[in-house]
Design a protein around this nucleic acid. Structure first.
Length: 574
DNA sequence: GCCGTTTTCGGCCCGACTGTTTTCAGTCG
């Protein structure tokens, strides 16, 4: 099997860490980190590109001759000589030390050369015996902090939480800050604003007359468990939930620049600043400067305009081509929540939903939808008490009756038909023909070898009755890895047959993800954004799915459930 | 290590806070 992009990226990331410990040229380190990111986000396997030759790899941004050659080496041998050498040159364990908050390459190195510390265990012992404070650059305060970090498992790797969860904390905090006297604006920036599926912390931005008063008020927020740092314009706390929140306060003339700066991504900012440099402009969180004179910065539009770009939505600010697109005036007109006319996956009490058919329909009508598809499970998903052919026939009668009572909404009968490991479907063709549309998805045998998993899905798509492939990779964020499959072959087949691929809006799924969504669209595949709601309240998950699709550069025409019912039915009749 | 309407060499984003330091390095984002 081909080496995965994630693994190639991991090798480069590790090499970057080791180079950092060797105090190598910081820009060289950045080049490895940048390459790791580019490779990880590449929808096409770099192993396939590598077989087409070094030149093909060098077309990737940030990949030059040297890195291209190293990728080829990794693809051919599974190993990287440069990494092996770096591992030999750096004592084992130092990388772990560097992951402790408060320890970077310099201080990890200092602990090693001063005390011979190479493991977390040794670090803890050295801290407890007061040895660490004897090392130059370390003192009693640092010692206490490090001890606490080790105690709280700070080195266990940062925990990212689902954006939908962070939203609950963030929105409450925003209301709190907006009540602080003198606060004019308050926003959540950072990866949250870019709508990344998970966030590591929250970055709050406030525009206020008296900055110190705001940071003072911020650290008294009742949910604050620990104050990590506090200055006149910047403060950082940890909430009881464990979530870290950073606050920056800026004057109004800098607010737009600050919002842009703290929204990121870092790679996007670097690209924008680079454009600024070409125009002899300096861009930071306080504004756009020519020499020491501020030329703009009150709004984000100002910042983009200063470097010759139109404003762009935060969701695409990942340095994945958006800067170039903006320069050419070719930014995509992204799909919006208000464009959505219907929801094409949800469950009722007929299988594993918690609300019944009528309640789901009423709730959908209240959202202003034109149509929904009810997609209860089939028998193979035993735990959900799925419906069989007779069950769907009985449900059909109730749906028909319901539709005669509904004014604005049309309920379509569908099913989330399980795909067996051999690629056959869990409902016979006669039963499928009786449905208004057919959704298929996988609920078992997630760990088949790549080839078999791919064939399984391709076989399912061969059935002409199939309209939508739901949660195509089966991943659960932070809990279950995506299935190993050749997505590009599945995209190809879906495009050819007119099968739509789902961006599932459940916060834990968001499947397809952003990169896959974009690759699917580029392959000519149509997208649907569905909530997979198991209760009326979950119909509101649509926003998370739309956000993910926007990150995948989806425009309204790319998304089938932005169409009217008659347009949709025509599309499905293909 | 990458990259080029400023370049094939010489740049590469930039500032706040902390702690330890007597003027700043390290870390972080």
């Amino acid at each position: 099997m081909d080496i995965e992009n994630a693994e190639v990226a991991r090798l480069f990331s590790e090499l970057a860490e080791l180079l950092e410990l060797q105090e190598a040229n910081p820009f060289r380190i950045r080049a490895y980190r940048n390459a790791a990111r580019v490779i990880e986000e590449q929808p096409e396997p770099v192993a396939a590109l590598a077989r087409e030759g070094v030149q093909r790899l060098m077309d990737l941004p940030g990949i030059g001759e040297d890195l291209a050659t190293k990728i080829v080496e990794i693809v051919r041998t599974g190993k990287l000589k440069a990494l092996a050498e770096a591992r030999r040159a750096v004592p084992r364990g130092l990388v772990d030390l560097m992951r402790v908050r408060g320890l970077g390459p310099k201080r990890a190195r200092a602990l090693y050369s001063g005390l011979g510390v190479t493991t977390l265990k040794q670090l803890e012992r050295a801290l407890k015996t007061g040895k660490v404070r004897e090392v130059p650059g370390f003192g009693a305060r640092t010692e206490a902090k490090l001890l606490e970090e080790l105690g709280t498992g700070g080195a266990a790797g940062e925990r990212r939480i689902l954006r939908a969860v962070a939203a609950q904390y963030g929105e409450t905090l925003l209301s709190f800050l907006r009540e602080v006297p003198g606060v004019r604006h308050a926003d959540i920036a950072g990866s949250f604003r870019r709508a990344r599926e998970t966030v590591g912390d929250l970055d709050l931005l406030v525009d206020a007359q008296d900055p110190p008063a705001v940071t003072e008020a911020f650290v008294t927020y009742p949910e604050v468990q620990e104050i990590l740092e506090r200055g006149p314009t910047k403060a950082s706390v940890r909430l009881r939930s464990g979530l870290q929140v950073d606050l920056r306060v800026l004057p109004p003339e800098s607010y737009g620049a600050g919002l842009h700066y703290f929204t990121g991504s870092k790679a996007h900012n670097i690209a924008v600043r680079h454009l600024g440099q070409l125009r002899k402009l300096k861009i930071n969180e306080y504004g756009v400067f020519r020499g020491s004179r501020r030329v703009s910065g009150a709004t984000e539009e100002d910042v983009f305009r200063a470097v010759g770009l139109e404003w762009m939505p935060p969701e695409i600010r990942e340095n994945r081509g958006e800067v170039e697109a903006a320069a050419k005036g070719e930014l995509p007109d992204l799909v919006e929540l208000g464009d959505i006319r219907g929801d094409l996956q949800m469950h009722t009490t007929d299988s594993d939903g918690r609300d019944d058919l009528d309640a789901m329909a009423r709730a959908a009508e209240e959202l202003g939808y034109e149509y929904i598809a009810v997609t209860d499970h089939t028998p193979a998903v035993a735990i959900t008490r799925g419906l069989d052919r007779a069950g769907f026939r009985r449900q059909r009668k109730r749906i028909d009756r319901l539709n005669t009572h509904l004014k604005r909404l049309t309920v379509l009968q569908s099913a989330e038909v399980d795909i067996h490991p051999d690629g056959t479907l869990d409902l016979d063709d006669v039963a499928l023909d009786a449905l208004d549309l057919v959704v298929v998805s996988i609920h078992s045998a997630f760990d088949l070898p790549e080839r078999r998993q791919t064939e399984r899905v391709l076989r399912a798509l061969e059935n002409r009755r199939v309209d939508i492939l739901a949660h195509p990779t089966g991943r659960l964020i932070g809990r279950r890895a995506p299935m190993r499959m050749q997505l590009n072959r599945i995209f190809e087949a879906a495009a050819e047959r007119g099968v739509l691929l789902e961006v599932n809006a459940q916060p834990e799924r968001l499947d397809l993800d952003d990169v896959q969504c974009r690759a699917a669209i580029e392959a000519g595949v149509g997208i649907v954004i569905s909530t997979d709601a198991h209760a009326t309240a979950e119909l509101r998950f649509m926003r998370w799915g739309v956000d993910q699709a926007r990150r995948g550069w989806a425009r309204k025409p790319d998304v089938a459930n932005t169409r009217t019912l008659s347009q949709l039915l025509k599309l499905l009749a293909r």
